[in-house]
Amino acid sequence: MGSIDSLYDKVKRFVTEFTSGKSTSSAMTGYMTGELQIVVFMMILASFFRIFSIPLGMVILAAVVGAIFIFGPMIKTIEDENSSDLNRVLFWVMIYFAVIIAVTLWG
């Protein structure tokens, strides 16, 4: 039910999900700005689809905007995936390499 109370709860949960542990004001600023950056960046990435086909690009842009609002905040995921854990970086390097070879060989 869309009462005012549940919307408040949702917003509160959304805001408190940004940081884990002690959230100082400067840390919060960083996380909030980072989240905004990621949202805009996703939209820019989606808009690159106009090169292939403009209608499809618009659909994907809309889908990305929707997904961001459903799955946000994404900054925690981004932060975790960008940690300098050796095995994680190795994993991402191999994925990257596979994608590059696949794109150039069969692209």
């Binding site: 100082t24 400067s26 840390a27 960083g30 980072g34 950056q37 990621i38 960046f41 900054i75």
Partner: peptide, 11 residues
Amino acid sequence: MLGVVMAMLQT
């Protein structure tokens, strides 16, 4: 993008 976003988060 990743560099600049991660730079925002550092203290």
